[in-house]
Design a protein around this nucleic acid. Structure first.
Length: 259
DNA sequence: ATGGTCGGGTGCCGA
């Protein structure tokens, strides 16, 4: 089973590039971030015609997540638990019914800039909520996959120019500590079990020729439980997608599972 | 070199 995650930065703007990626890469399941669409405005039939079941959790203008799956889905849930006041569409999860059921969370973690301020407070509080919910899901002992745009640069090697990020919400010590705290309840960064060292990025700014200079950061991640790690066959970043026609500023990351 | 670029909710905000 191949599962991808992709921050598309607007479904309307990616109406050609996303189907082209799916036709080329053929993931069984993909979780999308920043669909920037209401549920009723999402162009679902394009993907249904390609064999995908479409589950969205959208809002007007910004944010918005989705899961597209060629396999049956069960127990679909929208919204990160823990704060009834939080209406931002950043979380969707479902059980993928392949050979072995796996629980998939698709997440769009808050950016958090500027620092300090309410947006950074929201980011850190959101990460505490995510950790609590992840603990609940781990207790189910089903293979658990938490995929998406984490807006976290885990280590210096995950940025081409880490010195330019030292005051940024994506790289501040408190942000990285919150990410490590989530890992430390029993989740592994799947990409770093396959590749070591610098030069592996999933996002390049649209400005100042960042992609051409490979001035990127690795902020889109797959965190896997021990049960999911048992099934991991591969994990990679589809970097060349960033050089395509009308690209998102992020590229897809994917895993293959024996499941 | 103190700018630059996208996408959308629109003449500004979020990234």
């Amino acid at each position: 089973m191949k599962i991808a995650t992709f921050n598309i930065n607007g479904i309307k703007a990616r109406i050609e590039a996303l189907p082209a990626y799916l036709a080329e890469a053929n993931p069984d399941v993909i979780t999308l971030q920043e669909i920037k669409s209401l549920d009723e405005a999402f162009p679902r039939s394009i993907f249904e015609d390609m064999g995908y079941r479409v589950e969205t959790h959208g809002q007007k203008g910004f944010n918005g997540v989705a899961i597209l799956s060629k396999l049956p889905l069960e127990d679909i849930s929208r919204g990160l638990p823990g704060d009834a006041e939080d209406l931002q569409a950043r979380w969707i999860e479902a059980t993928i019914m392949g050979q072995k059921p796996v629980r998939l969370c698709g997440l769009y973690l808050p950016n958090g800039n500027p620092v300090p301020g309410p947006k950074y407070d929201y980011k850190l509080a959101w990460m505490v909520r995510m950790q609590k919910h992840a603990s609940t899901l781990l207790a189910l002992e089903m293979p658990l996959i938490m995929a998406g745009d984490y807006n976290i640069i885990p280590q210096a090697q995950d940025a081409a120019k880490p010195e330019t990020w030292v005051d940024d919400a994506l790289y501040l010590p408190e942000s990285r500590a919150a990410f490590r705290a989530i890992e430390n309840i029993g989740l592994q960064d799947a990409f770093r079990t396959r590749q070591t060292g610098p030069g592996h990025y999933s996002f390049w700014d649209y400005q100042a020729g960042a992609y051409e200079r490979n001035n990127g950061v690795r902020i889109d991640h797959f965190l896997l439980s021990a049960q999911a790690m048992d099934l991991l066959e591969d994990c990679a970043i589809d970097k060349v997608v960033r050089a395509g026609e009308k690209p998102s500023d992020h590229v897809p990351v994917w895993i293959k599972l024996r499941a």
